[in-house]
Amino acid sequence: MATHAVRLNAVTKTYGKHVHALRGVTVELPRGGFTAVMGPSGSGKSTFLHCAAGLDTPTSGTVHIGDTELSRMNETQLTELRREKAGFVFQAFNLIPSLTVTENVLLPFRLARRRPEHAWLAEVIERVGLGGRTEHRPSQLSGGQQQRVAIARALVTRPEVVFADEPTGALDTQTAAEVLGLLRQVVNSTGQTVVMVTHDPVAASYADRVLFLAEGVLVDEVYAANAQTIAHRMTMLGRARLAGTVGAAAC
Rank of each mutant, 00 (worst) to 15 (best):
G61Y: 00
T47C: 08
V6D: 12
Q146M: 09
L155Q: 02
Q174L: 14
D208Q: 12
A152H: 13
D220C: 08
L242D: 10
V6A: 13
N74A: 09
R113Y: 01
V105E: 06
G131C: 09
D208L: 08
G169V: 08
G169T: 01
A207R: 03
I65W: 02
N188H: 12
E166H: 07
S139C: 11
V186M: 09
L22R: 00
L183Y: 01
L95G: 04
G61C: 01
M1S: 15
T79P: 01
T245P: 06
L218R: 02
S189L: 11
G129C: 04
T134P: 05
V246E: 00
K85C: 13
H118L: 08
A53G: 15
V25G: 04
F90A: 02
L107N: 09
R115K: 14
D220W: 03
A152P: 03
V246R: 03
L70A: 00
A21L: 09
A154E: 01
T229N: 06
V217S: 06
A86Q: 00
I96D: 09
A240G: 10
R233C: 13
I151E: 06
A227S: 00
V11H: 01
F212H: 11
R241C: 06
G181E: 07
V6F: 14
F34K: 05
K17G: 14
G129V: 00
V128G: 09
A170M: 07
F88S: 01
V222H: 12
H136V: 07
